Each structure stands twice: as C-alpha cells, then as structure tokens.
Simulated scan of single mutants.
Amino acid sequence: MTDIVDDLPPEASHRDAERAFREAGWTPSGAGDWALALRSPDGVAAVRISPFDPVGPYTAALYREAAHTGQVPRLFAHRRLAGGGDLQVMEWLHAVDEKDAVAFHTAIAERAPHVAELVDVVRRIHARAARALPWCGPLDQNPSNIMRGSDGRLVACDLYYADGPALYAMAGSDPTRFVTLLPESERRYLTEIPLAESGPWDEASRAAMRRGIAVADAARADRDA
C-alpha cells in the first residue's frame, strides 16, 4: 500500500493522490469537513486525503511518536501534498459506543494512569502545533475521534484540528492579513475541502474567497519586489 504513496510525483495534489488510490482499487468509505477516505481492496487499511490540512503533520507525528502505547492508529504512510494537502494511510478503524468514547476522552483529560504515556505525547505535540499554527484549536473531544482497531483496542485519532470558522472568516474578511500568516504553498486548495458535514459551501463564495486572496497575494508581492 505504501507503493502508491512512493510512486506519487513530488508535486502531486490531493486530486492526483485520490486518482492513484482509486486506480489501485481503493474504494470510497466516507468524507468529512476536511478530508475524504478510501478503503484498501483487502479492507485492512484506509487512506485519508485532504486538500488542505494544516494540522496533518502533527496528527501523523502523534501516530508515530505514540505508537508504542497502542492507543493511536497504526500509521503506514504519511505524505504532504502540493498546495497544503495531507495524506495518511493507516489501519482500518471501527466505531465505538459513545459511552466508551467519552470515557476514553475523560481518561485523556484527567491523565489517567492507563493513558499517561499517550497523554504526554499528545500534549507535547499539541504544544508544538499551537506555537506554529495561528488557528490551532484545543484538543478535540468529539466522541467520533475515539475508535477501535481491528484487534479491539481503543485508539485516539484526529485529536488536533484547525479552527476552521476563524481561519476561513479571516481568509474571507481580511485576506491581506491572512496571506501573511500562511504561505501560498500551504493553502493553495483551501476552498476545496469537502465540507460533507457542515456544508454546503456554494461555488460563488469559494470563488470570491479565492479572488480576495489572489489580490492580497499580488499586492504583497508588489510590496516585496
């Protein structure tokens, strides 16, 4: 499965990545507000592909650095995509009862002994993300972020998130400031996230945001020339 990632060209976008996985037989398994997911032909893995995800590298770092706890998903591959996209190949996960998810979140918040090592990694990487990203939100306690691996263990996933409402509000209302906070190479496809849960987002509004950002980028380039 990592061969697909390895074969992607250096400038592959989220569209290129999705096409490559689909051509290899991976099938759609859902979409959220930031990414879509495809499942491997053998059912053991999933790939999460986002057009724009500032926190993706920190989530991948959590999966790598907390792997020894067994309380995060197994990460098989991670790749940043051109324009600020993010790709993660991980084990296929299953939903859990909400009470189990809430209990696990509570254990993380209280640094219960059985999750202490996980919590230490979670907090360390979150602090890094908060220092680097203007819109890094607090830890996400959505019950859907606690899932179960194929071996039955509970795992925490997607604990980090960008404050989308604040980020997009600034992009729309104050693009001049927005372009100074996030390089173009990390936000090229910010209007292409799926918004499967909180949408719809009409194309006219997306186009207007792109125009405003393009004008701000051009004005900044003129000032820096």
Rank of each mutant, 00 (worst) to 15 (best):
N145R: 05
A17S: 13
T69G: 10
N142Y: 01
P138N: 03
A101Q: 06
V44C: 02
V179E: 14
H78M: 00
A116F: 06
V102S: 05
E110A: 12
P54W: 12
A24I: 06
T2L: 05
D217M: 11
G164Y: 08
D202P: 05
R206V: 02
L181N: 05
E203M: 04
G32A: 06
P200K: 03
L133A: 05
H114K: 09
A116K: 15
A208K: 11
D33H: 06
S40D: 02
V55C: 10
D53S: 12
I49G: 06
I49F: 11
Y160C: 04
R188C: 10
S198D: 14
D120Q: 13
D97Y: 02
M209R: 15
E203Y: 01
P183M: 09
E110Y: 02
E91N: 01
A132E: 14
T59S: 14
F21Y: 10
A77D: 03
E192V: 01
F178W: 09
D86I: 00
A61Y: 11
P54Q: 15
G70T: 01
R123Y: 00
V121T: 09
R128N: 07
D224T: 13
R210W: 00
D217V: 13
G152R: 12
V47G: 10
I4R: 08
M90H: 12
E98C: 02
R123V: 12
D120T: 15
A207Y: 00
G43T: 05
I108M: 14
T176N: 03
K99W: 04
G85V: 05
A82N: 11
A204F: 07
R123I: 12
R123F: 03
F178L: 11
L181V: 10
A132D: 14
D53C: 13
V102I: 11
L167N: 02
L75H: 07
A24R: 11
L118G: 07
Y160S: 02
R48H: 07
A130E: 12
Y189S: 14
P175Q: 08
L181F: 03
L118T: 03
D33A: 09
D120F: 02
D140I: 04
R19K: 14
V96Y: 09
F76H: 15
A130S: 14
P175V: 10
C136D: 05
H14D: 07
E117Q: 14
L38G: 03
I125R: 02
E186G: 09
L62W: 04
D42N: 11
P200E: 06
E98Q: 07
H14S: 10
D202V: 10
D120E: 15
R131L: 09
E23K: 10
A60F: 06
H114E: 15
L167W: 08
I4T: 12
Y189M: 01
D7G: 12
S205I: 03
V119I: 05
A37P: 00
R19S: 08
G70M: 05
I108V: 15
A66S: 09
R148N: 01
M90I: 00
W201S: 09
L75V: 00
L38W: 07
A196W: 05
A46T: 13
A116H: 12
A101L: 14
T180K: 13
R188D: 08
A132L: 11
R187K: 10
R111A: 15
W26T: 01
L181T: 09
L38R: 01
V122S: 04
A216M: 07
